[in-house]
Design a protein around this nucleic acid. Structure first.
Lengths: 165, 165
DNA sequence: CTTTTGTATGTTATATCGTAACACGTCAAG
DNA sequence: CTTGACGTGTTACGATATAACATACAAAAG
């Protein structure tokens, strides 16, 4: 494993190689079940997001794809990422114009993103309750929610601690 | 009187001149109270957002500012818009890379944006409940939310009706 | 097995969104 | 009347994203 000592996607340490292989395997399954093909570029793009385990810009992903012998032009990355997002294998974090691998592919979940304004780490938290509240709020306006982006900016536990000293 | 019976930057018709003048007046007050200056460019930028009553890209706002004799380079618009956002007089809708005037300047509120995927209309709904749920979800991760972006994509009532026919 | 059809990949070129850095003007505080 | 903070304007550029077209490739139809 090469994983650097970064926080991310959860604010806690964890077994990385495990969550990578595991998630990748589930991703494969999700794609198959949807009748979609997790082709080499797409698979590699997902791997990249999982390896780094943080939110990455499309151009950053592109660079790593190119290193692996794939195309080096923006559409290559954007298309792979779009596929991943469409199939729930990755999420777009709009505040950062970045993408992050989904930690719960296949499971029916409502992710909310917690973005640390100090270290830029992004955690994907469970937001069923938030989503339910959103559906309620939308209903008042006669609006039916199909997709939602819920993102919070603040301080992660580690940075909050440091800044308080 | 303020507060019409609409659910805000809404999917319904309403008295426009009224909500414009009214909101503008309150904005002036908010700025003054914050010790900030609602200068001509800034005021005009807000007017533009209020007149059109929809989410607008920075370059679109810029164009209209230029028509009014203001500078025609991007920073002019971005700075005015940043001021408005910082002072709670406008919001950024990240899904659209666009800005919308706040319909409740000064009031303590937690906006959620309802974006119609068919007609691109944006409604600003009240999201106190959503925000509370978000705070709860964040707390589980030891994260303290400072700012949040909550955006929903779906169909507005009008478009939903049309598409069902 | 071949043709057809739809999908995936790659490329060039360009659109769209956003910011850094600096010059100038105004105004209020010292 | 100078200094310093702020606001506006400019040029130049960086970052993000997509359109349009060519080629390859795989699954379905013949």
């Amino acid at each position: 494993m090469q994983s650097p000592p970064d926080p991310t996607l959860a604010f806690e340490r964890h077994d990385h190689g495990c969550c990578l292989r595991d998630t990748l395997a589930r991703a494969e399954e999700v794609a198959t079940r949807a009748g979609a093909r997790l082709t080499p570029v797409r698979r590699r793009a997902l791997e990249i997001l999982l390896e780094e385990h943080r939110a990455m810009g499309a151009y950053e992903v592109l660079e790593k794809l190119a290193e692996g012998g794939f195309g080096s032009q923006p559409p290559v990355a954007y298309r792979a990422l779009e596929f991943l997002v469409d199939h729930g294998l990755a999420h777009k974090v709009r505040r950062l114009n970045a993408f992050a691998a989904c930690m719960h592919p296949g499971e029916d979940h409502a992710p909310v993103f917690l973005i640390c304004r100090a270290c830029n780490a992004v955690a994907e938290a469970e937001g069923q309750g938030v989503r339910a509240a959103l559906d309620d709020a939308a209903e008042v306006a006669g609006f039916r929610v199909e997709r939602a982006n819920i993102e919070a900016l603040g301080l992660c536990p580690a940075c909050a601690k440091v800044l308080n000293e």
